[in-house]
Design a protein around this nucleic acid. Structure first.
Lengths: 192, 192
DNA sequence: CTCTAGCAACTAACTGGTTGGTTGGCTGGT
DNA sequence: ACCAGCCAACCAACCAGTTAGTTGCTAGAG
């Protein structure tokens, strides 16, 4: 390991920020904790990423890009798409938490790096719209609404784990059954 | 208005705390803001409610009591139930936000009022189960999962308003269309 | 190959302001 | 006179963001 390695330092700060923001949100995150976790000086965070809000925006946007590449919408096989979405979020629980923190702390106000987000969603909606045009997916629900609701089904667990525990259970069997239910629900939402 | 009225003071602090916690969460909430909003001295908050965490717990606990009574499940008319749920949360947006903050900041650890919440959910599941037994609602999805997923559809907007704004829009027309989509989705989930 | 000047990477210490929480005293009703 | 309700002032800890200075890498002159 080189004594000076800005790329590695940047990467350490980034990963530390992901963990810190996912755990504590924006208001609860501590720049000092990120610096300590990354074994980097606090000032480097400001040098490389601007301020706290910018750091959060950069962190979330990069993670969103990652999910877009790893789990593209596949309207021709909704069930396996749901599987891949749920697998992804089970393996990377930070992303959804970052998204929820953003939703709760920023509300519906305009986001920093907004256009990237719009593009991200537009591509997914287009895929669904195309499937509707081809008659593979129902047109009873508009493509944007449909994506929104499918996302709700797949990700609700991460928002209200307390409710999930009480209502669904938390055993291996319960998890499998819930996943089957989510897929059945997704099938019903998209069926013609 | 009496010059000294501890009950009224308590109530003002309580309402201010509801608004503050709903808006900013636990870490983001400011005791000074609550005091200012309630036109009460800061010390009174500590005298009446303990510390910040206790105040949050008391606020959430009390708010949870209201929901069960106001919006009972009606499996025989899912669409109007969805309407009432969405109307309730549109009129009282604090409750869902408090619940989400609790989930994100405290995780899925044991709840202070666990048994009350279990009972609350059990009653709703029983209503759905009964409708399934009577053949009014599909049995393809277990009652607990079904309630969980219907809740997801109705409440997702409150979790990710930024996603909703970009994906669905935020005009009056968009809101009406989304609600129609949610109801269509709920109908599809419960149809035999 | 060697020296050194310049610059980017990095650091410690600090600043101005805020925070949750406390204390001792004043006030009004009885 | 009594005492609970109420308040201004205070405190120690904390926090995002800044500053002034140090260290190590490297390019280019000799």
């Amino acid at each position: 390991m080189a004594a000076r390695d800005p790329e590695a330092t940047k990467a350490r700060i980034f990963e530390a920020a992901v963990a810190e923001f996912a755990r504590h949100g924006i208001a609860g995150a501590r720049i000092d904790r990120i610096a300590a976790e990354a074994k980097a000086n606090k000032q480097l965070i400001y040098a490389y990423f601007g301020n706290k809000a910018e750091l959060f925006a950069i962190v979330l946007e990069k993670k969103m890009l990652h999910v877009a590449e790893d789990v593209p919408v596949d309207p021709d096989d909704i069930e396996s798409w749901i599987d891949r979405v749920m697998d992804y979020h089970a393996a990377h629980p930070e992303l959804l938490r970052l998204l929820f923190w953003e939703g709760l702390e920023y509300g519906s106000a305009e986001l920093p790096l907004e256009s990237a987000r719009q593009e991200h969603y537009a591509r997914k909606v287009a895929a669904l719209q195309d499937a509707q045009d081809r008659g593979v997916v129902t047109e009873a629900i508009p493509a944007g609404d449909l994506l929104f609701l499918l996302t709700a089904l797949a990700n609700w667990t991460a928002v209200v784990p307390q409710m999930r525990r009480i209502l669904v259970g938390e055993g291996e069997t319960d998890r499998d059954r819930l996943r089957a239910s989510v897929k059945e629900a997704a099938r019903r939402l998209t069926a013609r």
